[in-house]
């Protein structure tokens, strides 16, 4: 792992944005996630790593209640966002998802124009009062996603016509446009080529200035490159969670060490 340069470990704050306690997830009879305790820091990139089926994506989808859309899924335990239980009955998942944005594994632009893709969130949440404000949000979001220069001349072209890497950055711009506080990314680079991956990784590092970013990844190099904190999941358990440099160079648990050195997973 020669390219595993460890990113600078300057963590923005030490305030916990999200804190999960005793989270259990069941898919029907399957106990997919067992007793997970985690504190996710604000203005920090947190990486979830682990072999396929270990529950890392499941946990990610708990954080914006996307598991609600799966009929057989059942979540127990508490997850606090800024001290507020997001599974509380009074919390509207729709409003929660406006605060906790998500980027998926496969780029999924809507079959609309580039402009309408980015303007989608602001429109449905009524964030703007006029076209001018909306234009500004679209431009600033596309700039944050490092896509503005490539698409500024063809904002009315369909978003599905872009290349894979551009589509993924469009999806990031779309998520950023609702000004979320937390950005969840589920293997955002797994469908991208190395150049597009590098662009997205650079973007993730920049997004850290404003958001708490949680990224699920299969690539340990990627986790090492972009994250400040890393959590290792195995068979539905959170095995180890800590500072990225420590996890990769000096893991406390033997399972973590085996995974990082390539013996399991």
């Amino acid at each position: 792992m020669n390219d595993m340069r460890i990113a600078e470990r300057t963590v923005g704050t030490n305030a916990a944005k999200i804190s999960a306690r005793g989270v259990q997830v069941y898919y029907g009879e399957t106990h997919a996630l067992k007793d997970v305790d985690v504190d996710i820091l604000d203005r920090t990139v947190t990486a979830f790593i682990g072999p396929s089926g270990c529950g890392k994506s499941t946990f990610l989808r708990c954080l914006n209640r996307m598991n609600d859309t799966v009929a057989i899924a059942r979540v127990e335990g508490t997850i606090l966002l800024d001290g507020q239980d997001i599974y509380d009955k009074r919390i509207d998942p729709v409003q929660l998802r406006a605060k906790v944005g998500m980027v998926f594994q496969k780029p999924n632009p809507f079959p609309k124009s580039i402009y309408d893709n980015v303007a989608y969130g602001p429109k449905i949440h009524g964030l703007t009062r006029n076209k001018g404000e909306l234009d500004e949000i679209v431009e600033s979001s596309l700039r944050k996603a490092a896509l503005w220069n490539e698409v500024k001349g063809r904002l009315n072209d369909p978003g599905t016509g872009l290349s894979g890497g551009q589509q993924q950055r469009l999806c990031i711009a779309r998520a950023v446009a609702t000004s979320p506080e937390v950005l969840l990314m589920d293997e955002p680079c797994s469908a991208l080529d190395p150049i597009a991956t590098a662009q997205v990784e650079e973007l993730i590092d920049e997004l850290r200035e404003n958001y708490a970013v949680v990224i699920v990844t299969h690539s340990m190099q990627q986790a090492a490159r972009v994250s400040q904190r890393t959590a290792f999941f195995h068979l539905g358990n959170l095995v180890e969670y800590g500072e990225t440099g420590q996890i990769f160079t000096n893991p406390k648990d033997t399972r973590t060490e085996s995974y990082i050195t390539g013996r399991i997973g």
Binding site: T69, V94, Q95, G101, F104, N108, F110, P111, K112
Partner: peptide, 26 residues
């Protein structure tokens, strides 16, 4: 594709908004 549905829901669209603005045009 389910991805489109999830994409709209993850942006905080309600089910109704998802149907009208994303699923129906598609």
């Amino acid at each position: 594709p389910r991805a489109l549905r999830d994409g709209a829901l993850a942006l905080g669209a309600t089910r109704g908004e998802t149907v009208i603005t994303v699923l129906f045009p598609a």
